[in-house]
Computed example of a mutant assay.
Amino acid sequence: MPPTDATEKLNRIKHNPLDPNPRLALYLDTSVPLHAVAKANFLIDVSSTSRQWFLPVVRPFCRLTICAFKLLKTVMPRFLTSTRLLHHSIHWGLKWFVSPYANYLIMRHFHIGTELLQFIAANAKGVRMEFVGLRPQTLHDLTKNVFLQHDLNIFNFIIEINRQLNEQGLELQPKGELDFGCITDGDFPIEDMPCGWINRIDLESAIEIYTPMYQLLLTDSDFWRACNSLQLDETIALYATTLLNDHRYLGLVNNKHPIVPSSTLGAAHRLMLHGLAAEFLHAFLVRQKRAHERARDALKQDRPPQATPAGTDT
């Protein structure tokens, strides 16, 4: 099923002033930047039967399991630790049980995370950065330790960029004209997601189910790092908006205050907020890229740039 199927479903909704559809209202709203297809997939996913009925049932069992595994890991820290088994089990579950809308958003997230870090590294003065870019195109690509590497990339990036700035006595600032070359304005090269008759589980339910698997199959250090990485949305957003000299986006960040970590029991919902925050920031950078290109073209043609019409995000 192509991801545009979600867009088609929302476009078919008829507006009834006496019974307005909440999904249609949010889909048509253009107050914040968001990739149109990703937004449609989010709305279809969060309004699914799975999220309405399955999530409330499975959530308490998953959180009890996290507590049980925490006790087990306290006694036997290395019991059944295997990142390979974790990633292959995630791949198997996504392929057979998770909805195409949720899978599409998961795949997008790794591309977006890579591009956000690349943008900051490419534009920060005095910084030379190398890290493992994550560009999965198929669900099977996720078996290459993609989930764990995503968390490692974030922490290693923050450590390295601040180490370099501190050694040079520099504050974070742009090196010159901003380079938006690493920001994709359009869709990522992602395969069509499986759409079998049992591919019905929504994104948040899937995350709730896999969080105990993280607790079991990762070391305690890896699990805590993965959960705490969700609180770094504010940090990454501050880096990007400082380079842009435009902090309007910060109001959209919900995962804040990384110095005071949140409970691992709420990791699933925080991961949803993390994914949405990354989408917002990437869409914000796409808007800035378009404005930059219009201004550059206007200078070439010696005319003032035109404003972007509302609601024109890809």
Rank of each mutant, 00 (worst) to 15 (best):
M1G: 09
E8Q: 14
E8P: 00
R12G: 01
K14T: 13
K14A: 10
H15I: 05
N16L: 01
N16T: 02
P22S: 05
P22A: 05
L24E: 04
D29L: 04
T30L: 01
V32M: 05
P33M: 09
H35S: 05
A36P: 00
A36S: 09
D45A: 04
D45G: 06
S47D: 15
F54K: 02
R59N: 11
F61N: 06
L64M: 13
L64S: 14
L72C: 07
T74K: 12
T74S: 11
L80Q: 11
S82N: 06
L94E: 08
P100F: 01
Y104S: 12
I106C: 08
R108Q: 15
H111Q: 11
Q118N: 12
Q118W: 01
A121I: 08
N123L: 06
V127R: 06
V127E: 10
R128L: 11
M129L: 15
F147A: 13
D151I: 10
N156K: 13
F157M: 08
E160H: 01
E160I: 05
N166H: 06
N166W: 00
L170K: 08
L170P: 07
E171T: 12
L172F: 02
P174F: 00
L178M: 05
F188H: 09
C195I: 08
C195Y: 08
I201L: 13
E204C: 08
A206P: 03
I207C: 08
Y210M: 15
Y210C: 11
T211K: 09
Y214S: 10
L217C: 05
D220P: 00
F223A: 14
A226N: 09
L232N: 10
T235G: 10
I236M: 11
L238A: 12
Y239C: 15
Y239K: 07
T242W: 00
L244R: 03
N245T: 12
N245F: 06
L252G: 06
K256G: 02
G275A: 07
L281G: 04
F284G: 02
L285W: 00
L285M: 07
A295V: 05
L299E: 15
L299Y: 01
L299R: 15
R303T: 13
T308K: 01
G311E: 06
T312Q: 04
D313C: 05
